[in-house]
Write a protein that binds this DNA or RNA. Structure first.
Lengths: 252, 252
DNA sequence: CCAAAAGTGTTCTGGCTACACCCATGA
DNA sequence: TCATGGGTGTAGCCAGAACACTTTTGG
């Protein structure tokens, strides 16, 4: 820290953006698609192009809070899982100098409709927002295509060693539903028998006494054990610290 | 992006800091210790305390470049591996609002002495810098203790699935030396026989015709295969893209 | 010759895969 | 009854752990 602080007019601004994924069941499609909301830009750099939801960092809020706030302001959505992805700060990634702290998030499929319906009922439905299949995006503003690709890579990675998939499911779910989420993210079929054993052995699932009926043989409903995932988190945060969440994501 | 840009005087400043590890052989110690350089603060917030090397982000440089530059300016060191760690931006982590983009880095043990000797010869030896055992740090400035803990966690994690250890070794090394690096980072003994097979099977090592003699039976020297690690990287970066390095670290 | 690290071989085990098979339900 | 997904059993394979053993040097 030997340098003097930058001049006030040496404008490096800090933005916060969020790549928020959910699953959408497409009719006639084998698997659900990973989709994300984008916002159409109405201003000069890249006007008319689609961009990640986000906004400027406020001086009075932390980074996590900024991600949640800007996401809500632009899309009306509140994520069920939120984790910092990466800080992008190349000089030429924007006409003006902008450092973007990017988050990635998950939203339970049932919550998407619920939250949007609530906004529609209140008359403050978000504008200029549209949902896109993550696998086939148009050219986005700034470096947002690369950012989405990186977020997708992280999501697929994390599915392998973490029980992140529950961020896309309602509280109670069947093992078949959980498997379908994993299949959608990974893009390939998983053996139902082996998936079941793995999931049960992970210790993160609590079987309930309820069953999902309607189709064929009723399937037992499971709940997610919120205590277990602490082990997956990074360092410290002594199990009850009220301080800022450690780097590794927060659950809503 | 519905909000207006922040006022120029709404001073959220962007700093860049680096946790740079190397190994130090302690006499009479079983394993080498993980050590890192810290800088004694000479200014108001936390004056006199030790802090991570870093500085303010310049408007004309990218984040990676800023990490390298501020690290060189404060400690005179140039890392052999550099990767972004996390962006810290809690409102109360500093008296004034500072968002810190933190990097973590590795430096080959042989390079440490070489680089410091070069600075000493030129008479621009860094001041107020001291090396600390990462396992027993004093209370540092700001939230730097937590940051170091998180960096250590990432380092230990990455050793498991990546061949990151070569960032702490000279170009040519024996499997015994490579194993000792892993043992120092993980803090436990590894079976020499199994470690050898794993390392050989990884495909990342190129055996040379040279041997390290002097102690007992001569040990074959290996070289690191720089082509392989690309697979470990994140997304895209089509194998020859000159653009900014993808999130996942750069090798010097 | 001895100590010690380099390097090889072998066994055991746990986890994962593949796949056969039974169970319970709606239609 | 049949089709379908839920759920169980099991054999094969492979990676890692443990450890016995041989090899090659310096002293």
């Amino acid at each position: 820290m030997t340098r003097t602080p930058p001049e006030p007019d040496a404008a490096t601004r800090v933005a916060v953006s969020t790549v928020i994924f959910t699953l959408r069941r497409m009719p006639h499609a084998e698997r659900a698609a990973v989709v994300l909301p984008l916002v159409r830009r109405t201003r000069d750099p890249f006007e008319g192009r689609w961009a990640l939801p986000g906004g400027w960092l406020d001086v009075t809020e932390g980074l996590d809070a900024a991600a949640s706030r800007t996401l809500a302001e632009t899309t009306g959505l509140a994520p069920s899982y939120l984790e910092q992805l990466y800080a992008f700060g190349d000089v030429d990634r924007s006409p003006t100098r902008v450092v973007s702290i990017v988050y990635w998030a998950l939203l339970r499929s049932d919550e998407v409709d619920a939250q949007l319906a609530e906004h529609a009922a209140r008359g403050d439905a978000p504008e200029n927002v549209s949902w896109f299949d993550a696998a086939s995006l148009p050219p986005l503003a700034f470096d947002h295509n690369q950012i989405v690709d990186y977020a997708l890579w992280r999501l697929r990675n994390k599915v392998g060693y973490s029980r992140i998939a529950h961020g896309l499911l309602p509280d109670a779910f069947t093992l078949g539903e959980l498997r379908e989420v994993n299949e959608s993210i990974l893009g390939r079929r998983l053996d139902p028998a082996n998936f079941r054993r793995q999931a049960e052995a992970s210790g993160t699932l609590i079987p309930t006494d309820a069953f999902r009926t309607g189709s064929h043989r009723p399937a037992r409903l499971y709940r997610y054990n919120r205590d277990v995932e602490l082990a997956e988190r990074g360092p410290l945060l002594p199990a009850g610290s009220p301080a800022s969440p450690s780097p590794e994501g927060i659950h809503a």
